[in-house]
Write a protein that binds this DNA or RNA. Structure first.
Length: 842
RNA sequence: GCCGAAGUGGCGGAAUUGGUAGACGCGACGGAUUCAAAAUCCGUUGGGCUUUUGCUCGUGAGGGUUCGAUUCCCUCCUUCGGUACCA
C-alpha cells in the first residue's frame, strides 16, 4: 500500500490527468478489507453499542445473483458502515439457505448430486457478493446444508418433539400418480401437473406436523410491539386469523352422531336454513342417505381434484350436493337439509357450517343457486323484520324472527346465546384461528433428515424370521405409532448417499430406498428411520442465532454470544417473505425462548421489506422473459460504487421499481465528477458562510437519511452538493475530508482511495461520522410563498425570523399580490412563519 | 376469491405532522470539444395559451373535507406481492 503524502495547500489531491480507474480501485480495496479483516466482528464487553444487521440469506440458485439480491444487501451494508462510523460494534454476516427443490430437480434430470450443485452455486454466489464490496464478516458464514449447522436444526426439532409440538398426522397433499411425486401448489395448474399436465389429486399421507397453533396467541400478541410496516403486521395478524364465535351441535335425524359447526355469528342461529359439511368431512359417509350416496361420493371425489384457492373463489358458481340427511336446529327445532359443498373447507373450524343465507354472502349465493330458503334474522335498528333480502346483510344490527331474542343487538345476542347454548349443553363459546399446524415433512432427498426412528418387524410374507434383514429388502412392518427420538449425541443425522432422488409409486421418499441407512438393529430389535426430510423453512428458522457464534460445537451459540448480539437490530429482506418465513421463524424463536435458549420473545424487533426490482420491461425478472440483469456485467462496465449508488438511488428501498441500465450512466458520471472535485487545488482558508451552511446541511441530511434508510434522497443531496462545489476553483480541505467520510458507506472503494490520497491511513471506515452544528444551518433569509385564494401568486424574500405581523404586511403590500386583492375584501389571512402566507379575498 | 402494497413529466423518482408539485438523476433536444465516435463539459426540457410581465390545466378515475390536498375521508379502476410443498 503506497503511502500518499498529505496534499499541500494549492496542490490538487489527485493529479488532474488521472482518470478514476474503478476496476483497479475496487479490487485493491476489496483485497485490503479481506487481508486486514477490516469488518471482523468480536464481542466487545466495553462497548454496549452493538448492532446485528441481518440480510435474509439467499437460496444459491444456479442462475447466480440477479440485481434483486444486492438491493437489500447494499442497503444493510450502507447502514452497517454508517453505524460503524458512529462507534457501533456491528455484526453483519452472510450465509446460504442451501437445501431446496431446484438442486434436487437438477439432480433428477442430470444425476449430479445436489451437494455438488450446491457447492458450485454457493461458490459463485460468494464470488458475486464479494465483488459488491459488502462489509460482511466472512468468518461467520453459515450454510444450512453443513452437518455442523443442521445438527442444530435437528436438535431444535427434537426439542419440539419432546414438548409435544411435533407430531404425525394424515394430511392431504398434492399427489401426482403419473410423476410419482408430491407437488407444490405452484406446480399444480387447474388440477394438472405443471410438468407434463398429468392429473393431480389431494391424497392423505402420513406427515410430520408442527403445532404452531399452540403459539397462535403469542404470535398474535407479539406483533403489536414490532417495529415493522403496518401492512405486514396486518398480514401476520390476518394469517393467524383469530375469530371468536361458538361451536354448536346439531342433531342429525335418524343418527346418533351430532354435527358440530363453528360460527362467528351465533346470533344468526335462527336464520340457519340448511347445513353444509365439507366434502372431506368424516361424518359425510355416515349421514348420507343411500339414495344420495352415489352423487355425494362422486362430488367428494371431484372435490379432491380442486385446489383450495379455487374452492374459496367467491366469483365462481357454487356447487354442492344434497346428502339426504336432515339436521335439527337446536334453537327452534326446525328441520334443515344437510348438503355437502366444496366452499366449506375440511381444515377450518369443524369442517361443517350452519348456513345462514340471509346474512352471509357465500351462503346467500349457494341458497340462490339451489333455491333454498333465505330468512332475515338481523335488521337495521329501526328496520322492517319482514323486509325481503336482495343480498346478504352481513353487518351487525338488531335481532328479529329469533323468538325470545328479538330486539337484542348483535353483540348482546352473541353473549346471551353462548350462555344459553352452554347451559343447555348444545355448544359453547369458542375461539378459532385460520392458522393451521405446519406440515413439516417433505418426500424429498435434499433436506435435513428428521431425527426420528420407529420399531419395525417382519412384514407379511417374511418367511425366515431368524435370517430376516430389512436391509436386504425383506418385507417389513413399521410401527409409525411409536416414534423414538435420535439421541442428541448421535446428531447430526446425515443424509445417505444415493443417486436416485425420485419418490416411488407409493409416495415413499428417496431415503426409503437407502436400506442400509434406513434400517438398523440395536439390542436385538430392528428399527427404521424416518425417511421424510424437513422443508426448506427449517434451516432459515434459526440461522440468525448461529451467526452469533457460528462454529460453536457444543451449542446453537454460546449464552454470551446470544446475550451480546441478539436480538437482530435490523432485518432486511423481500416482501415475499411477509408471512411464512417470518411467522415460522418467530414460532421457533418463541419455543427457544420457552426452553431458555434465547432471552427475548421476538427475534426481529425491526424489519424492513425491500421492494422487488423488476426488469427493464417492468415485468418480474425471469429467465423465461429474458429480462434478467446480471450484476457481473454492471460491475465491469460501471464499477462497484456506481452500481451500489444506482441501486439505492432508484427509489425508496421498500418500493417495487423497474431496473434501467441507462440510469447507471448517471451514478457513474457522479463518481467521475466526485473524483474530479479532488483534482481541484486544496485550500486551507476558513470556510465562508455559504460553504459552512452547505457542509453542515449536507452532514445533517446524509446522516439522518442514512439512519432512516432513505438512501435515495441522501444520494440526491450529495449530488446537489457536488454540483455546487464543482463551480468553485478550489476545494477546502475540511470539506474534502468530510465529504469522503459522508460518501464512504455508499461508495466505499472510491472513499478509501481518496482517504489515502488525502494522506491518511486506511481504513476510512474507522473514521468517526462528522457532526453538524445546528447554528451553522440557519440562512439569513428565505423565499416566502404567498397564496391568494389557494394559488401561489408571489414569492417574497424575507429575513429569517420575521414575525407574523411583519409577514402579513409584507405579503399584503407586494404589488403582485395587490393585483389579486384589488377591489376585493380580504376575509382571512393565514400566516405560517417559515412556511407560507395564504390570503382569502372575495 | 381472500389478505397486503403501490399508482406523480417521455422514464426512475422528490415534496419527511395538510403549506412553493416535479428536487436529484436518466432520456431527449441544442451547443462546445473531436478527423469521427465514445467519454466529458455548457444550456433547454410537464401539457396548453401568451410578444413579455404572465395565465391556465396537471399527482390512476370520480366525489368530499379545507384558506390550501400528491398528503386526510368515501367509491371505483389498474398493477404488483402473499395465499401454507417456489424461495
Amino acid at each position: 500500500m503506497a503511502n500518499h503524502p498529505r496534499p499541500e495547500a494549492g496542490q490538487p489531491t489527485v493529479n488532474p490527468d488521472e482518470r478514476f480507474d474503478f476496476a483497479t480501485t475496487d479490487a485493491k480495496w476489496q483485497q485490503f478489507w479481506v487481508n486486514n479483516k477490516t469488518f471482523k466482528a468480536d464481542i466487545d464487553p466495553d462497548n454496549d453499542k452493538r448492532a446485528f444487521v441481518l440480510d435474509m440469506f439467499p437460496y444459491p440458485s444456479g442462475a447466480g445473483l440477479h440485481v434483486g439480491h444486492p438491493e437489500g444487501y447494499t442497503a444493510t451494508d450502507i447502514w452497517s458502515r454508517y453505524q460503524r462510523h458512529n462507534g457501533v460494534n456491528v455484526l453483519h454476516p452472510m450465509g446460504w439457505d442451501a437445501f431446496g427443490l431446484p438442486a434436487e430437480q437438477y439432480a433428477i434430470k442430470t444425476g449430479t448430486h445436489p451437494r455438488e450443485t450446491t457447492k458450485k452455486n454457493v461458490d459463485n454466489f460468494r464470488r458475486q457478493i464479494q465483488a459488491l464490496g459488502f462489509s460482511y464478516d466472512w468468518d461467520r458464514e453459515v450454510d444450512t446444508t453443513d452437518p455442523n449447522y443442521f445438527k442444530w436444526t435437528q436438535w431444535i426439532f427434537l426439542k419440539l418433539f419432546e414438548r409435544g409440538l411435533a407430531y404425525q398426522s394424515e394430511i392431504p397433499v398434492n399427489w401426482c400418480p403419473a410423476l410419482g411425486t408430491v407437488l407444490a401448489n405452484e406446480e399444480v395448474i387447474d388440477g394438472l401437473s405443471e410438468r407434463g399436465s398429468h392429473p393431480v389429486e389431494r391424497r392423505p399421507m402420513r406427515q410430520w406436523m408442527l403445532a404452531i397453533t399452540a403459539y397462535a396467541e403469542e404470535l398474535l400478541a407479539g406483533v403489536d410491539g414490532l417495529q415493522w410496516g403496518e401492512g405486514i403486521k396486518t398480514m401476520q395478524r390476518n394469517w393467524v386469523g383469530r375469530s371468536e364465535g361458538a361451536e354448536v351441535a346439531f342433531a342429525v335425524e335418524g343418527h346418533e352422531v351430532k354435527l358440530r359447526v363453528y360460527t362467528t355469528r351465533p346470533d344468526t342461529l335462527f336464520g340457519a336454513t340448511y347445513m353444509v359439511v365439507a366434502p372431506e368431512h368424516a361424518l359425510l359417509d355416515v349421514i348420507c342417505s343411500d339414495g344420495q350416496r352415489g352423487d355425494v361420493v362422486a362430488y367428494a371425489a371431484a372435490a379432491t381434484r380442486k385446489s383450495e384457492r379455487d374452492r374459496q373463489d367467491e366469483r365462481k358458481e357454487k356447487t354442492g350436493v344434497f346428502t339426504g340427511a336432515y339436521a335439527i336446529n337446536p334453537v327452534n327445532g326446525e328441520r334443515v337439509p344437510v348438503w355437502t359443498a366444496d366452499y366449506v373447507l375440511g381444515g377450518y373450524g369443524t369442517g361443517a357450517i350452519m348456513a345462514v343465507p340471509g346474512h352471509d354472502v357465500r351462503d346467500f349465493a349457494f341458497a340462490t343457486t339451489f333455491e333454498l330458503p333465505i330468512k332475515r334474522v338481523v335488521m337495521a335498528a329501526d328496520g322492517d323484520p319482514n323486509a325481503p333480502l336482495e343480498e346478504a346483510f352481513s353487518a351487525t344490527g338488531v335481532a328479529c324472527n329469533s323468538g325470545e331474542f328479538d330486539g337484542l343487538t348483535t353483540a348482546e345476542f352473541k353473549q346471551r346465546i353462548s350462555k344459553w347454548l352452554t347451559d343447555k349443553g348444545l355448544g359453547e363459546a369458542k375461539t378459532n384461528y385460520k392458522l393451521r399446524d405446519w406440515v413439516f415433512s417433505r418426500q424429498r432427498y435434499w433436506g435435513e433428515p428428521i431425527p426420528i426412528y420407529y420399531p419395525c418387524f417382519p412384514g407379511d410374507g417374511a418367511t425366515d424370521r431368524q435370517l430376516w434383514d430389512p436391509r436386504r429388502g425383506d418385507a417389513v412392518t413399521i410401527d409409525y405409532k411409536s416414534p423414538i427420538a435420535v439421541a442428541e449425541e448421535e446428531l447430526p443425522l446425515r443424509l445417505p448417499e444415493t443417486d436416485d432422488y425420485k419418490p416411488n409409486e407409493s409416495g415413499e421418499p428417496p431415503l426409503a430406498r437407502c436400506l442400509d441407512w434406513r434400517f438398523f438393529e440395536r439390542d436385538g430389535q430392528w428399527y427404521a428411520r424416518e425417511t421424510n426430510t424437513m422443508p426448506q423453512w427449517a434451516g432459515s428458522c434459526w440461522y440468525y442465532l448461529r451467526y452469533a457464534d457460528p462454529t460453536n460445537p457444543d451449542f446453537i451459540a454460546s449464552p454470551e454470544a446470544i446475550d451480546y448480539w441478539l436480538p437482530v437490530t435490523l432485518y432486511v429482506g423481500g416482501a415475499e417473505h411477509a408471512v411464512l418465513h417470518l411467522l415460522y421463524a418467530r414460532f421457533w424463536h418463541k419455543v427457544l425462548h420457552d426452553i431458555g435458549v434465547v432471552p427475548h420473545s421476538e427475534p426481529f424487533p425491526r424489519l424492513v421489506n425491500q421492494g422487488m426490482i423488476l426488469g427493464e420491461d417492468g415485468e418480474k425478472m425471469s429467465k423465461s422473459r429474458g429480462n434478467v440483469i446480471n450484476p457481473d456485467d454492471m460491475l465491469s462496465e460501471f464499477g462497484t460504487d456506481a452500481f451500489r449508488l444506482y441501486i439505492m438511488f432508484m427509489g425508496p428501498l421498500e418500493k417495487v421499481k423497474p431496473w434501467q441500465t441507462a440510469g447507471m450512466h448517471g451514478t457513474r458520471r457522479f463518481m467521475y465528477r466526485f473524483w474530479s472535485l479532488y483534482q481541484k487545488q486544496i485550500s486551507d482558508a476558513p470556510l465562508s458562510g455559504d460553504q459552512q451552511s452547505l457542509l453542515h446541511a449536507l452532514i445533517k441530511k446524509v446522516g439522518e437519511d442514512t439512519e432512516a434508510l432513505r438512501f435515495n434522497t441522501a444520494i440526491a443531496a450529495m449530488m446537489e452538493a457536488l454540483n455546487d462545489l464543482l463551480k468553485s476553483d478550489e476545494l477546502n480541505r475540511e470539506i474534502a475530508e468530510t465529504l469522503v467520510v459522508l460518501i464512504s458507506p455508499y461508495a466505499p472503494h472510491m472513499a478509501e482511495e481518496l482517504w489515502a490520497r488525502l494522506g491518511y491511513e486506511p481504513s476510512v471506515s474507522k473514521q468517526p461520522w462528522p457532526v453538524f452544528d445546528p447554528a451553522k444551518l440557519v440562512k439569513a433569509s428565505y423565499l416566502l410563498p404567498v397564496m391568494v385564494n389557494g394559488k401561489v401568486r408571489a414569492k417574497i424574500e424575507v429575513p429569517t425570523g420575521s414575525d407574523e405581523t411583519h409577514l402579513e404586511t409584507v405579503a399584503l403590500s407586494d404589488s403582485r399580490i395587490m393585483k389579486w386583492t384589488e377591489g376585493k375584501v380580504v376575509r382571512k389571512i393565514i400566516v405560517k412563519p417559515g412556511r407560507m402566507v395564504s390570503i382569502v379575498a372575495k
